[in-house]
Design a protein around this nucleic acid. Sequence first.
DNA 1: GCATGCACTTACCTCAAGGTAATCTTCACT
DNA 2: AGTGAAGATTACCTTGAGGTAAGTGCATGC
Lengths: 133, 133
Amino acid sequence: MLDGVETAQIYIERWAAAAGATGPCPVRDVLDKIGDKWSMLLVMTLAGGPKRFNELHRAVPDISQKMLTQTLRDLQRDGLVSRHVFDTKPPSVEYRLTRLGHSLIVPFGHLIEWANGSIRRIEAARKDFDAAR
Amino acid sequence: MLDGVETAQIYIERWAAAAGATGPCPVRDVLDKIGDKWSMLLVMTLAGGPKRFNELHRAVPDISQKMLTQTLRDLQRDGLVSRHVFDTKPPSVEYRLTRLGHSLIVPFGHLIEWANGSIRRIEAARKDFDAAR
DNA sequence: GCATGCACTTACCTCAAGGTAATCTTCACT
DNA sequence: AGTGAAGATTACCTTGAGGTAAGTGCATGC
């Protein structure tokens, strides 16, 4: 990973190139997932190890059943999460990150670090901006 | 930057810690911005150097004037972008990334790399999933 | 026999993001 | 006088993400 302005150039060029190429931009595509309310929370929760449906629900209590099911289905469809049904008495279902899912953790981690490191400056900027208004 | 599962643990712990601390989670906060339709496109466009309003509009033709203004205002409020008015004949306005704005480029770059490197596998997974349906 | 947990599914509703289009002000050009 | 560029602001409308609440099928515990 380089740094500085030239890096930005490389990124935006690749971004632009990718955008032009296969129709819809991969970055847009991925950002839509990452930007939604629950996907990354579930990925990070599953990063701690496989979990069952209600186990996930207990770990993330403020998600609705509907959104839990739907978000898991989407993650599964994208190949980030795999679903395993065990034929027990009441059938239990386990969700776990795939390799691809795991590979998201590091790049996403950089963003978490940035967010945690920058939030004070962002909030300060907001205060200043609103005060000037 | 470490790698592997233990890294995930660190991230999610810090995430959880940050979430509990100052009310609304910084990561959620930042993700809302990053996940919106135009913010990151504008940040990456401005990474190439300062631009004027209509210059940005030409660089990103499918954004509406309304959303261009609004997104720039939000980025300015968060301290990622600064706005400079020049007292020329028809007053011109220049937007540029702040230091904070620049600092987003590298962590976000990791995500671009991941997206570009993973999109083929994601699309393949979607095809498989939809075929099984 | 009734309630409870598990893993969903479905119907219905709300709210906010974002699009469209019209309008504004000031100046310069013709 | 009329047109056009710059940098917006405003009113109106559509769409979809996400919430609420209820229902489903099955099995075990009380």
